[in-house]
Design a protein around this nucleic acid. Structure first.
Lengths: 251, 251
DNA sequence: TTCATGATTTGACCTCGATCAAGGTCGGAG
DNA sequence: CTCCGACCTTGATCGAGGTCAAATCATGAA
């Protein structure tokens, strides 16, 4: 979708700028050493929009970090019902140290670049470098909070509230990624198809479409084309989510 | 509930047997030192069934581990809709290092004993003792997997599948706590009210009641009283969950 | 340009689970 | 023992969202 923005935003650090392990301050010397070790075990991969990165159950001999683009984690039942269980934006982590098989399908929903680390070396690096584990723990706890917020959405919200919540989540993350001013009217592209939104929200794509139309007719959002959204009044949108005011979505 | 098994399993360490930090092999000397440090910052608390341990938003100056009984994490919307987001059995961890306010309501659904650690000392102990963080990472990753399985349930399963899944989860956890033989007919008490099950599953208590009745009439489960369940054929029950055969529930 | 393909919208209809409303069961207090 | 309140079951009805079907819109290949 709009990876151009991200690239220009970060282009002073061409390599591996989004590795989770880089997010904690360490002394310059340690940092240099650490980066050097990481250099040895890392490589990049790219996927076009729509391509599957790994299938659930496949052996996965790497962990990775999203550099640009968007990926999803999802589960599918035997009869084809599928539920998205993770939405991965730049800097998010893919994979689980200590497990060799992928638990979920990982799919690129936009063109995607990820930075991979071979798993065994990464694991031994984790043992030698406690703060990597600490950072990973923080990220995992954040993901767990996001998953629990998501559970409330899936279990108890109406279709309209679900759509409003998803748009608010995307708007917020987009805003934070692009470092825009806070309360300006927000403008962005939906990075997901109606079907992907349905899989996120536990709805059908028809219901998603209808509710988006309803929000548009009610003036909560504006649409140009199918994907380009303007939010004239973010507070108004939040009022549609069912959440108490400032709620801390972390997805 | 039934901590007896765990006791005998670890009975050379009479205190604090369920601390998450005890689950990784360390040398005897380190273990002794570590236990000593833990002793200094730990204390026990008990709650009767139904009592709230902490409210979402309250300051929480401890982390804890469930010793016996069952606790739940749940979120409530302004209008009263509530969704359970965590089910904590013995040895599960409560609280989040690095955060001072509780994110969810924590409630004892049975009589409950927890082992608490004052938060600041625990956090500094974590820094000195990497394997505590490692263990916590593992546990958090397991919880995240469980949350994602739960999301599939909430988003895509029918009421009957939800009930069957919950009963299977409880049966499996109960069996593993009691170290029973695998394919014996399973017998246990439901540790949750119909309302708590509804909050777990994103249903109303009436629907829970109706579906339990239906499963009973179809011979998938047997009921004595309201809570005492016998599962004559576990495979049959699994067939009702919608999951592909051996699925790895971790809740 | 035209065609094909995939994404989206819209309509008609129906079903599953929510809602509202009684009753039933059981254990503990008096 | 009886009464009370918490918990559970069952029935009747309704509506949000699912299902099926068809039309519309884009976009890129030929």
């Amino acid at each position: 979708m709009n990876t151009a923005v991200k690239l220009s935003h970060n282009d002073h650090v061409p390599d591996c700028r989004d590795c989770p392990i880089r997010h904690r301050a360490v002394c310059a010397r340690c940092e240099a050493e650490e980066l050097e070790r990481l250099e040895e075990i890392k490589y990049y991969r790219t996927y076009p929009a729509g391509q599957t990165v790994v299938w659930a159950g496949d052996r996965m001999d790497f962990v990775a970090s999203v550099v640009s683009g968007i990926a999803t984690l999802s589960q599918t039942m035997e009869d084809g019902r599928t539920q998205m269980v993770g939405l991965l934006l730049p800097s998010d982590f893919i994979g689980r140290p200590g497990r060799d098989d992928a638990a979920y399908d990982v799919t690129a929903t936009t063109d995607l670049i990820i930075c991979c680390f071979r798993k065994r070396p990464f694991e031994s690096l984790m043992e030698k470098t406690p703060h990597i584990g600490q950072r990973l723990l923080e990220m995992t706890l954040d993901e767990l909070d996001a998953a629990r917020e998501w559970m409330l959405l899936l279990g108890r919200k109406t279709a309209r509230e679900k759509i409003a919540s998803l748009i608010a989540i995307i708007a917020r993350r987009d805003a934070s990624l692009n470092l825009k001013g806070k309360d300006k009217s927000m403008v962005f592209d939906l990075p997901l198809t109606r079907e992907a939104m349905a899989d996120y929200l536990g709805l059908t794509l028809e219901t998603v479409s209808r509710q988006i139309t309803a929000l548009r007719k009610d003036g909560v959002i504006q649409l140009e084309g199918k994907r380009h959204v303007t939010i004239p009044d973010f507070e108004r949108l939040l009022g549609e989510t069912g959440d108490d005011s400032d709620g801390g979505y972390l997805v």
